[in-house]
Computed example of a mutant assay.
Amino acid sequence: MARKFLVSRVALAVALSSGLAVVAATPAVAAKKEKAGATNFSPEFVKVAAPIQKAMADATAKISGGQATPENLAAAKQAFDAGVGGDGKAVFQNAVGTATTPDDKSALGSMMRNYGIISQDLALKQQGNMLLLESGKLDAAAVGSTNYDAGVTAYQMKDYPNSAKYLKAAKDAGYVDSSGQLDLVLADAYKRSNNPQAALQMAKDDIAAAQAKGAARPNPRCATFCSRPTPQSSSDRRPNMRPCWRSTIPAPGTLPFRSCASSPRCRVTRTSISCA
């Protein structure tokens, strides 16, 4: 129960701390740049997106000091809605059909994601993430961070299969989150989507990567933590067994994983991690 709470709390904190400062360039300016071959915005999108961009600039100006407090978010949403005539979400949904080029999708996705954060609408925020990824306009660093944000957002929405999909993409892209929670949330998403085989494979891959880098060292505590069976009840409180109670396969980043799976002496099976 404690671990479930920790993962949910971390996922929420990460999502709400996502930057609001990154706003797409105004479509009007982008249209001028198109002459130099820098961008390719469709005329239909430029027309629809111009008031959205202006309203978003007014909204983000309400985020005092970049702090996403409830008061700042409410003020930002109110400013945006007023700027587009009342219903910000409807304006974004109507704009989707005009976003036909990669640059259109990138600009709209960025603004839609920001409005999803401001309005605390996870579904809209995720739709913005999807447009950003679909656009193909993200640089290598942004691909990892956007997949991570999409994975965390999907986790918050209890869409665990897609959470695992995007978190795995972030991990494969080499993204490292500042809170160090990617592996933990990914392992839990695998578990909640009934895919323990993927969680096991992730553990094996992490062990192999650590050993390849020479980071894994024989750990004398491995036998202490892993050689005995998992306790059958909460009354079985032998100290040497307690660290393995959390799960049969300890999640990456946890004490049992570091103590057991990091040792090259350990053997990973479908149901346990034990010493060779």
Rank of each mutant, 00 (worst) to 15 (best):
R9G: 12
A15C: 03
A15V: 07
G19S: 15
L20P: 10
V23Q: 07
A25Y: 07
G37L: 13
S42E: 00
V48I: 15
A50P: 01
P51I: 11
I52Y: 00
K54T: 15
A59N: 12
T60E: 07
K62F: 01
I63Q: 09
G65F: 10
G65W: 10
E71R: 12
K77M: 03
D87G: 14
G88K: 00
A90Q: 05
D103T: 11
D104R: 02
S110F: 03
M112S: 14
S119V: 02
Q120G: 02
Q120W: 04
E134I: 02
E134M: 12
E134Q: 13
G144R: 01
G151C: 01
T153V: 08
A154Q: 01
K158D: 08
Y160T: 08
A164R: 05
K165Y: 02
K171T: 09
K171L: 10
D172E: 14
A187T: 15
S193C: 03
D205E: 15
D206I: 15
A210E: 08
G214H: 08
R217C: 08
Q232L: 11
S235N: 11
R237T: 13
R237Q: 13
R238Y: 06
P239W: 07
M241N: 12
P243Y: 06
C244F: 14
S247C: 00
I249F: 05
I249D: 00
C260Y: 03
P264A: 10
